[in-house]
């Protein structure tokens, strides 16, 4: 049995390059080029010259907030709980990935007016990345960093959350396109 396993595996490893196809179609770069993030420098500079006082106050407030959070975190959190996730690099990478995806979707949802999306404050709180479930899992993981089941549960939590957010956005998109069609339907 072992020899057979090795045969298929070693065949793939020895011929790894032959398994590669050509690259993507040439048009893909043109589509991607439009997605390159624009540097915000000019906008910030313009904003500063126009509303410098307001900006300064906001920057100060944010800085205060960040400093206070930083200070309290260091004072109250135990070292091991901070490092629990950092000990498992692939979990940290997965967390980074899902966090950025979830935050991205949450931003899109937040941009939709409350009366249009029809979510009450409890639902909105639940949608937040770090809801009660998350906090519970995070605490459990900090106490048992090596526990495979808790790690799997955390990843499941991220996946389910992402799925839920995707669904909300898809529904909203469907609703929007129906709304756009409506005036036309009325004229029929």
């Amino acid at each position: 049995m072992m020899q057979q396993d090795d045969r298929l595996e070693s065949f793939i490893r020895q011929n790894r390059a032959a398994f590669e196809d050509d690259g993507p179609p040439p048009g893909l770069w043109a589509a991607l080029e439009k997605e390159i993030p624009q540097q915000p420098t000019t906008n910030v500079v313009k904003m500063f010259t126009k509303h410098w006082l307001k900006v300064a106050v906001v920057v100060l407030l944010v800085l205060n907030g960040v400093l206070l959070t930083f200070f309290f975190q260091h004072k109250t959190k135990k070292e091991e709980s901070i490092n629990a996730v950092a000990l498992i690099p692939e979990l940290q990478e997965a967390q980074n990935y899902y966090t950025s995806q979830i935050e991205d979707k949450l931003q899109q949802i937040k941009a939709i007016p409350a009366d249009k999306i029809g979510l009450d404050s409890t639902a909105r709180r639940e949608l937040e990345l770090k809801n009660d479930t998350y906090k519970l899992l995070e605490k459990e993981l900090a106490n048992n960093p090596g526990n495979e089941r808790i790690r799997a549960a955390l990843i499941r939590y991220y996946q389910l959350k992402l799925e839920l957010l995707d669904r909300i956005l898809e529904e909203q998109e469907r609703f929007d396109s129906l709304e756009k069609q409506e005036p036309y339907v009325k004229t029929l």
């Binding site: 692939e90 495979e148 089941r149 799997a152 990843i155 996946q159």
Partner: peptide, 17 residues
């Protein structure tokens, strides 16, 4: 076999043991 992740990494990525 192709992306050369370990079983442990794969388990974490997929949320399985």
């Amino acid at each position: 076999l192709f992306e050369e992740y370990s079983h442990r990494e794969i388990a974490t990525m997929l949320g399985i043991s």
